[in-house]
Design a protein around this nucleic acid. Structure first.
Ligand code: MN
Ligand code: MN
Ligand code: ZN
Ligand code: ZN
Lengths: 151, 151
DNA sequence: GGCAGCGATGCAAATCGTTTGCATTTGGCC
DNA sequence: GGCCAAATGCAAACGATTTGCATCGCTGCC
């Protein structure tokens, strides 16, 4: 049980609100999507397609549908994609006013994931942009280590 | 032509020295490995297996051999693996006294890669370790943006 | 509430990067 | 030169993700 400051539990949107966000984008609120959103709402830890699939009531939908749904949810800004360095995409629900920028600490033994509150690069990003001539500079930062349990 | 400060050209080991580093680990200095190291020595930008393969004199070795060779070179600390976020592993030669810790700025349009000199997290890493109880904390940090050419 | 139409889904096959089994070759060392 | 473990070629296997296509089911509209 890592002692890191977890970000405060953000109030998660109710299902009808999520349905609305989808319809606003001319997307359907299907059974599969409802179930996927329910899973993501239940646990804020970034989850892979397979993890989500495994938590769905048996055979509710095909794995391909999960992949397609998460793409769509990412497009409309309802989920954020994370790359924790193991070649598997993970997703977490986003509040409507959240850009999802955040970082994690991942145990390299058991893959436990802890959200990190720091973002060390507010001004660094600007400095890099100025020096390089690159525009729209963003960053991806993840920490790795061995969790207390695995030590 | 990005204006970013490229890291100073580090003196690269001569081929015989590289051969030696391999033999010291009881590994053979084969034709394939010699060619792969030559490619990496010629261009310090992190390169994928396929990129290296493409620069090798026609059919000098199989792609599988490149994969195996890079694993081995990584094991003995002669190359460093980078993950620039596109699902393809890239590798760069390491000097004997270099741990290879560095960061990059990647153009999301044309994939141009620029090495970044900053590492914003010397003390952050320690703070995170203390707060989380995780040991051996490291980090991976990459920047993304749109290069001058692609803007 | 019923309907048409477009978006969504299931299923299977395809992709892509990477790994691996196995028979064969080769570099390093005496 | 010869031995032998290490290295290689080739093709098949893999795991994550994507896609083609026929079918199905939300939604907006009447
Ligand atoms: Mn940040
Ligand atoms: Mn760093
Ligand atoms: Zn752990
Ligand atoms: Zn570019």
């Amino acid at each position: 049980m890592p002692a890191v400051t977890q970000s405060l539990p953000r109030r998660l949107a109710e299902m009808p609100v999520l349905a609305d966000r989808l319809r606003r984008h001319a997307r359907k609120f299907t059974g599969a999507r409802q179930a996927i959103l329910a899973v993501l709402r239940h646990d804020s830890r970034p989850m892979s397609n397979k993890e989500i699939f495994a938590r769905l009531p048996g055979g509710l939908c095909d794995l391909a549908t999960i992949y397609r749904s998460l793409h769509l949810l990412e497009e409309v800004g309802m989920v954020k994609r994370f790359d924790l360095g193991d070649g598997v995409a993970r997703f977490a629900l986003l509040r409507e006013d959240d850009d999802g920028h955040r970082h994690h600490l991942v145990c390299t033994r058991c893959a436990e994931v802890v959200e990190i509150e720091e973002c060390c690069t507010p001004e660094v990003e600007k400095r890099i942009s100025e020096r390089s001539g690159f525009k729209a500079v963003t960053h991806r930062l993840e920490f790795f280590g061995i969790c207390p349990t695995c030590q």
